[in-house]
Write a protein that binds this DNA or RNA. Structure first.
Lengths: 383, 383
DNA sequence: CTGTTAGCGCTTTCAC
DNA sequence: GTGAAAGCGCTAACAG
């Protein structure tokens, strides 16, 4: 059907092996022969058969990038950065496979299986991980197996995997061969973590310094590492400032997804519970936009009546009105680093983990609380 | 090294062929045998070798999705939609490969080669196409070849490919086999186009109806189909309303990328050229945010002094302050449809092309022009 | 430097 | 219903 190596070899008057060598370029070939082969390739419009070469060479040039939501720029930026590192010299070009898990543990595993089938050269898991112990164990086992088989595993924006840990009886055979395959490339998973805790803590300290005491939190989904870390940072700041503030923390916290409508709904719920709150911390910038919309529709001014802060510092945050105070995560740098790690082009950090610093970006959406503000105007939101 | 089909067969006490049949499920196998095989698979933690099976079956389960900028939600939303259609029943699961071309023609071709190597089941090209004749011809030829080889080709958000057209001598052998390979699946490229022209036209008509006459345009990159179509729609509306308006059209148009800073810079340039303009049309919503920022920093109010409109209706547009008047493109629906077409799960529309309607979304950023407004305040932007 | 020779792991007729 | 055998197209030792 299609043109094969043999066809090219025939036309160039050489053996298939020679054509293969010319194409992969990792072997000495006479200049004359090489150009003759190249010409034949051109003339026949030959295109290497990927599966065949992957089968014979037992390697593939696929790199999987798992994201929780590709429509969210948070992931788009990281994916783009990972991919930008995947094309060094024309030769070792890798193909990034972006897989959208939708945040579902099952799909995460499913895609990993697909990637495993393809004998992917590496996989990069981005964003928060689900904290269900069962899933975590299954995921860790799967990733360890892939790493053992030579696939590089990089975690970007989530904490390291738990160690093999506790005994795990009732398992099929072959479950004890966890040790590396004497392969050399089979280092365990590498992590590029974000300092969500520190960022959240600094953000809350900023609000506290401005004089806020009743700070609402529209947190992310429960059972997610990122959600937990940001909340922990927030509460640590509260505790350090005045342990008494912790008393109201639960009432001042609602959970939702990392999206606009969760911010909108969450803000309304918070306002219902605590009409006199003076600030709202959103799960991320996207949710912050929803919070702002809800406040505005309720008749509250930002930051006059209520201060609002986001997280991530996505591109649109600086352009929101008012510009959003948020915590910047160097997503591009983190993704690029993950990409290099996935290719083995960067030394693995000590302990297999690097933490990316986050930076507080103070902008117009936060200001000192207005003392003695009247509670929520009657009427409620207009939508 | 890894567990193979033969290992599973041995453990289950059957032949490799039987295991293969059980796994692919497209062949009658005795119930008892099937469960025995399945158990062996479980116990051995067997994972199919993708390349090997792709080689033997001469098909792959990869679907390539080419995007111009994965960090842009415009593409993220479409990619996500395409992918969401790629997993019907557990069985025929396809793996979406999102490739970021960065809008570069070379990379577009490079990725297509990579996909061709992998014998991708389908490729979906999203977003605007570069209009360089040479590239267009190369791209069309390449896509036709892939389609001829059985790969489904879908264009989403760009116009159909040109027909083979003019004679193209001086070509290698095998360049005349363009006709389908009697394969059945080898239909030519299918297109899901956006009605950019109509949307732009309606947007401009809206502005015209409000009373605007000096409308600036921060258009997208030159030589891009989307840019040209939106500009054509704009000018058609102008011409229909009053041909005299066309005279200033060129002076009132600047080009940039589809990003925030292009909108920012473009708005300043437009203001410099035409201080008394009363409205600005941005290339897309992201650029519109930049336009708004520039206007605000210049001391102009939106829509009081200048109306602003975007294009695409990305999620954040409704939350901008003021909420952005824009043209909604049903990106998710379009992407989903492209995904179904790529899988052959939806009938090819007549003529191989479907046009997705666009919808004018009138919000708060556009209003009647203020008559007799004073020109740009002195001082200029503060950044 | 180049050709020969074996497979890589799976799918798929064709017999039984 | 199941097994046997013949490749799919390429790479990777070995010879020469």
């Amino acid at each position: 059907m299609a043109v094969t190596l043999a066809d090219v070899a025939a036309r160039a008057g050489v053996s298939a092996a020679t054509v293969s060598r010319v194409l992969s370029g990792n072997y000495p070939v006479a200049g004359a022969t090489r150009s003759r082969v190249l010409r034949a390739v051109e003339e026949l419009e030959y295109v290497v058969n990927g599966p065949a070469s992957a089968l014979a060479a037992a390697t593939s040039d696929l790199v999987g990038v798992l994201v929780n939501d590709i429509a969210d720029p948070f992931f788009g930026i990281m994916a783009s950065a990972v991919q930008s590192e995947l094309e060094p010299g024309k030769a070792g070009r890798k193909l990034a496979v972006v897989c959208n898990t939708g945040g579902s543990p099952e799909r995460e595993l499913t895609y990993l299986t697909l990637l495993q089938r393809q004998r992917a050269a590496a996989v990069v898991l981005t964003g928060s991980a689900v904290e269900d112990p069962e899933h975590t164990a299954a995921l860790a086992a799967r990733l360890r197996r892939m790493a053992g088989a030579g696939t590089r595993v990089v975690l970007c924006g989530r904490p390291p995997l738990p160690e093999p840990g506790g005994p795990d009886g009732a398992d099929g055979p072959g479950s004890t061969d966890g040790s590396g395959d004497a392969d050399g490339t089979a280092a365990g998973p590498v992590t590029v973590a974000f300092d969500n805790r520190g960022g959240a803590r600094r953000l809350t300290e900023h609000l506290l310094a401005l004089g806020h005491r009743r700070i609402g939190c529209v947190a992310g989904p429960v059972e997610r590492t990122t959600t937990r870390h940001r909340l922990e940072g927030h509460r640590a700041a509260l505790a350090a400032h005045d342990p008494a503030l912790l008393a109201d923390a639960d009432r001042l916290t609602v959970h939702g997804a990392y999206d606009r409508s969760s911010g909108y709904d969450g803000a309304l719920e918070l306002l219902r519970r605590t009409p006199d709150l003076t600030a709202v911390l959103a799960a991320n910038d996207t949710a912050a936009l929803g919070v702002c919309a809800a406040l505005r529709e309720t008749g509250l001014r930002i930051p006059g009546d209520v201060s609002v802060a986001g997280f991530d510092d996505l591109p649109f945050s600086a352009d929101a009105a008012p510009a959003l105070t948020t915590v910047r995560i160097p997503l591009h740098e983190a993704g690029a680093r993950a990409g290099r790690l996935a290719l083995g082009r960067e030394a693995v950090p000590p302990g297999g983990m690097a933490t990316v610093r986050t930076e507080l970006m103070v902008r117009a959406s936060t200001a000192p609380p207005r003392t003695g503000r009247a509670p929520v105007p009657s009427g409620g939101p207009t939508r």
